[in-house]
Amino acid sequence: MTPRFTCFSVRHLAGLLATSLFGAVVACQPDSPAPNTVSQATSNGLSALPTAAPAPADNPSSAAKVELGRLLFWDPILSGPRDVSCASCHHPASAYADGLDLSIGPNGQGQGSQRRFRQPNDLPFAQRNAPTVLNVAFNGIGPDGHCDPTTASMFWDSRAQSLEAQTLLPIATLAEMRGRQYSEAAAVDSVVARLRRVPEYQQRFAAVFGGVAPVSAANLGRALACFERSLTTADAPYDRYLRGEQAALTDEQVQGLTAFVQSGCPKCHTGPMLSDYQTHVLGVADNAKLGATDAGQNGTYAFRTPSLRQVAATAPYMHNGTMSTLAEVVRFYDAGPRGGRASLNPNVPNARLDPLLPTRVTNQQAIVAFLGSLSAGSFDRTVPARVPSGLPVGGSL
């Protein structure tokens, strides 16, 4: 049976705010207590992010599997030149993102926004901005709380469904982890062959998965997915506010939540993860570092709505990192008093822009403040002291 959760949907706040939150909260004085809207929200079936994520039936979680996945996540043995790990672009110091507009994979050096290519270099930047993997376990969750981990949308163009499928693709991608050591077709098998030559991995895979050939591509994907599924956070101020901690949000953040809803943002940024997990054509300008246009999903220039979880901690923004601040992003969605909107990408005619784009975005400063309430401060930041390959933990950081 597919697990179901009682989850918070911002979309459902529109009617509620029109009658209670907007009129009461915006009008309240800074020195007076904010009205308790939480009980009203819960009575309408709204809730915060779930504290537990569903797992596929064929990949249940266990402490040993999470630990194996953690070691693999930090081990550069998964990359062609053995200098890049998953953590290179998804580091806890950067809220499991990397702080770059476009990520730097093989032949890179440094951590976070300080990461640079070593010289000489003949490898490109990764094509798109690295999203955080915090709460990626909830990808695909809808406003009704339904979440099927076997069909969860992954990547900016939704080209993979499920964490198990997603985890293997960067290993085969030139600019992310593969480099030029082997072909795309041979990449995953080459990495599996490496792992089989490491006695500790042989032992750990056998203990977790059993069978005659426990070190396999499928089990590699399962272990990585199990670890990533453990990286959840449910104590953002926004979540605590919805659970009844009235002081968790400032007056400005509550006003920002009101403006967020009234500006139409929940048409796409909805549900517990504040994403509809659909693709939309926004007309964002290309990143000049690519030297070419990025046509998105199936050449349509459509990209998936990102979750807004941890958004204040994971700049820069949009699918290619071309917007540096949340204020810039919020301004982008405001079409101005006349409601006319122009595409920033010459390959996207104005007529192809998504009709769900808002016309006016009100109280933008308060919305930015509200977006800051979506970041949790407590999450697993564990870095292993060593990895079984004996290589530097994390690669060339």
Rank of each mutant, 00 (worst) to 15 (best):
138 F>W: 15
141 I>S: 08
142 G>V: 03
143 P>E: 15
144 D>T: 13
144 D>W: 03
144 D>N: 15
144 D>H: 04
146 H>A: 14
146 H>Q: 12
146 H>T: 11
146 H>P: 00
147 C>L: 09
149 P>V: 00
150 T>K: 09
150 T>F: 07
155 F>D: 06
157 D>K: 03
159 R>W: 02
159 R>D: 08
160 A>M: 13
161 Q>T: 13
161 Q>L: 13
162 S>M: 11
163 L>W: 10
163 L>K: 06
166 Q>S: 12
166 Q>R: 11
169 L>Y: 03
170 P>W: 03
170 P>A: 06
170 P>C: 07
171 I>R: 00
172 A>L: 06
176 E>N: 09
176 E>M: 03
181 Q>A: 13
182 Y>T: 15
182 Y>N: 12
184 E>M: 06
185 A>L: 07
186 A>I: 01
187 A>N: 02
189 D>T: 00
190 S>E: 10
190 S>I: 04
192 V>N: 11
192 V>I: 14
192 V>E: 10
192 V>G: 08
195 L>E: 09
196 R>G: 05
199 P>R: 07
201 Y>P: 10
203 Q>Y: 07
203 Q>I: 03
203 Q>G: 05
204 R>V: 00
204 R>Q: 15
205 F>D: 10
205 F>V: 05
206 A>C: 06
206 A>F: 10
207 A>R: 13
208 V>R: 09
208 V>T: 13
209 F>E: 11
211 G>F: 12
211 G>A: 10
212 V>G: 04
213 A>W: 07
214 P>I: 05
215 V>E: 14
215 V>G: 07
216 S>H: 11
217 A>R: 01
218 A>S: 14
220 L>S: 06
221 G>C: 10
222 R>E: 04
222 R>H: 11
223 A>L: 04
225 A>W: 02
226 C>T: 15
226 C>Q: 08
227 F>M: 02
230 S>A: 03
232 T>D: 02
232 T>S: 02
233 T>P: 00
235 D>S: 14
236 A>S: 15
236 A>M: 05
236 A>N: 06
236 A>R: 09
237 P>W: 05
238 Y>P: 01
241 Y>T: 06
242 L>V: 13
243 R>T: 06
245 E>W: 05
246 Q>E: 12
247 A>S: 15
249 L>I: 01
251 D>Y: 10
255 Q>G: 04
255 Q>M: 12
255 Q>D: 12
256 G>N: 11
258 T>A: 13
259 A>F: 08
261 V>I: 14
262 Q>S: 12
262 Q>G: 03
264 G>I: 04
265 C>N: 11
265 C>P: 11
266 P>C: 01
267 K>R: 15
268 C>N: 09
268 C>W: 06
269 H>S: 04
269 H>Y: 02
270 T>Q: 13
271 G>R: 00
272 P>F: 00
272 P>A: 15
272 P>W: 00
273 M>E: 14
274 L>Y: 14
